[in-house]
C-alpha cells in the first residue's frame, strides 16, 4: 500500500485515495465537431504503461481534491504529485 503525498493534505495512506485513470486527457471543447474516430480516441483509448505513467488521483476520504501523480508502474514508486492545472514535471 502506497503512501501518497496529497498536494493539499500531505502524506496519507493509499486507502484514503481513489485512482482515476490516465491524466492529461482533456475533454474536447467542441465534441460535436469530432468524427466518431476522434471522439472514440478521447472516450476509450487509454495507455497502460509498464514504467512511468501519469495518473489522476482523488483524495476521496480526505479533502476530496483531484490531483495528478507520476508513478512508475513497474515498482509503484511515486515520482511526483502536482495539482490539477499544473504542468507535469519534465524530469
Amino acid at each position: 500500500m502506497f503512501i501518497i503525498n496529497c498536494p493539499f493534505c500531505g502524506k496519507r495512506e493509499q486507502s484514503e485515495f481513489k485512482a482515476g485513470g490516465e491524466a492529461h486527457i482533456v475533454r474536447p471543447k467542441q465534441p460535436t465537431e469530432l468524427s466518431d474516430d476522434q471522439w472514440a480516441e478521447y472516450l476509450f483509448m487509454r495507455k497502460n504503461i509498464k514504467g512511468i505513467q501519469f495518473e489522476r488521483w482523488n483524495h476521496a476520504h480526505g479533502c476530496r481534491k483531484w490531483f495528478n501523480m507520476v508513478r512508475d508502474t513497474s515498482n509503484d514508486e511515486i515520482k511526483a504529485v502536482y495539482k490539477m492545472g499544473e504542468k507535469p514535471p519534465t524530469k
Binding site: G20, V26, R27, N58, A60, R64, W66, M84
Partner: peptide, 13 residues
C-alpha cells in the same frame, strides 16, 4: 457527487 466534483475540478474549474 464524485462525478460532479471531478468535472468541476478537472474540466470546468
Amino acid at each position: 457527487m464524485g462525478k460532479l466534483e471531478d468535472y468541476l475540478q478537472t474540466e470546468w474549474p
